[in-house]
Amino acid sequence: MIEAPGILWTIAAFLLVIGPLVFVHELGHYFVGRWFGVKAEAFSIGFGREIAGWTDRRGTRWKVGWLPLGGYVRFAGDMNPASQPDPEWLALPPEERAKTFQAKPLWQRALIVLAGPVTNFLVAILILIGFALAFGDLRTPAVANSVEAGSAAEAAGIRPGDRITALGGREIETFNDLARFARLRPAEMVPLTFVREGRSIEGEIRIGVAVEQDRFGNSYRVGRLGIGGGMPQATPVSLLAAPGVAVRQTVEIVQDMVSAIGQIITGRRSVKELGGPLKIAEISGQQAALGLTPFIFLVALISINLGFINLLPVPMLDGGHLLFYAIEGVTRRPVNPVAMEWAFRGGLVALLALMVFVTTNDLASFGVWNRIAGLIG
């Protein structure tokens, strides 16, 4: 077992993951806003009191806040969280009002908001392109090289040499597809299709459950089929094919996120598995301790997470703004300002509650509550 990294190493690794990703996210908003002629009044990495900063010749204040858990771009005219016109905005001189966010047409506002999450996806895709060029595209056929005795696969009638073609209604092309699908669905009963000697056979399989422990001692409940695959084959990837490989991998990661969220909502996966900033910090330190390649892959994974989460239709997130813009586009009129204001207040409360909850989960995973209970007892 590898010794866990120290607290200073963990904090440094966390800042090296979150800081640049927040920066590029907000930079996406900033550049598209500037492209459309919107003045940026402030660009902040972190929240709270400014600890360092400068003002550029365009009048934008670039600063770093003391709490490095996010960031923002404040465009001219953003006088409330919902970016709604108000009397203060109407009182601006026409030439100043023309440079504000609210003065821009709907499609430009939507693109400015969309630019942040898209930038996070682009960063991840660029990293995965580099991995594809460096290591190739590892693909293993979804053929059972071996079947473990007493496993879920044996109970479903799978034999060595069978090729899995569909699982849970999803087409299976590679062994990685098979493992990814099963891993997120411990104990679930799902439809199964496999080919034996040219004949397609349909049935069902109850995915097995295994508790795995990583090299740092963290335990995870995962799904397992009990099928052994053959040796993976690294197919060289050309410069032209690499973007396609990276996009495919990004889509697969997003599909896993959607599946995991769906399982939490439906109760098939415990909410205790949700992690927050403290867990991200711990994992950042662990991956950095393993080497540069695992750490860079984690950056890509977190970047995809940031892009995906920000697209969720939750007020206060980019996806919440886009939802209201979609409603405005369909109805041909802005959403009622009062309703939007209350929606954003509710979104803020929900996000704060979620932050408290995941932080509580993080502390529980570190054994803090058990130690406190032991001291009290």
Score class of each variant (00 low, 15 high):
L240M: 09
L240K: 06
L240R: 07
L240N: 07
A241G: 00
A242P: 10
A242F: 10
P243T: 11
G244L: 08
V245P: 11
A246L: 14
A246K: 12
R248A: 14
R248F: 07
T250W: 08
V251C: 13
V254K: 12
Q255V: 12
Q255P: 12
D256F: 07
D256Y: 05
D256H: 10
M257K: 08
M257D: 10
V258G: 12
S259C: 08
I261E: 01
I261G: 00
G262R: 07
G262V: 06
G262I: 05
Q263V: 00
I264Y: 11
I264W: 10
I265V: 13
T266D: 12
T266P: 02
G267R: 11
R268W: 14
R268N: 15
R269Q: 15
V271S: 14
E273W: 09
G275M: 03
G275H: 01
G275C: 03
P277Y: 09
L278N: 00
I280K: 02
E282C: 00
E282P: 00
I283C: 00
I283V: 09
I283N: 01
G285W: 00
G285R: 00
Q286E: 09
Q286K: 02
Q287F: 13
Q287Y: 12
Q287K: 10
Q287G: 05
A288W: 07
A288D: 03
A289T: 02
A289S: 11
A289N: 05
A289Q: 03
L290H: 10
L290D: 10
G291M: 07
G291K: 07
L292D: 01
L292H: 00
T293E: 15
F295D: 06
F297Y: 11
L298Y: 06
V299I: 15
V299M: 15
V299A: 14
V299L: 15
A300W: 02
A300P: 06
L301N: 10
L301S: 14
I302T: 05
S303V: 11
S303W: 10
I304E: 05
I304C: 07
N305Y: 04
L306T: 07
L306A: 08
L306C: 08
G307N: 12
I309A: 07
N310C: 04
N310L: 04
L312S: 02
L312R: 00
L312V: 01
P313N: 04
V314C: 06
V314A: 06
P315V: 08
P315K: 08
P315G: 10
P315I: 06
P315R: 07
M316C: 11
M316H: 12
L317W: 02
L317A: 00
L317H: 02
L317Q: 00
G319S: 08
G319L: 04
G320D: 03
H321M: 01
F324I: 08
Y325N: 13
A326K: 06
A326R: 05
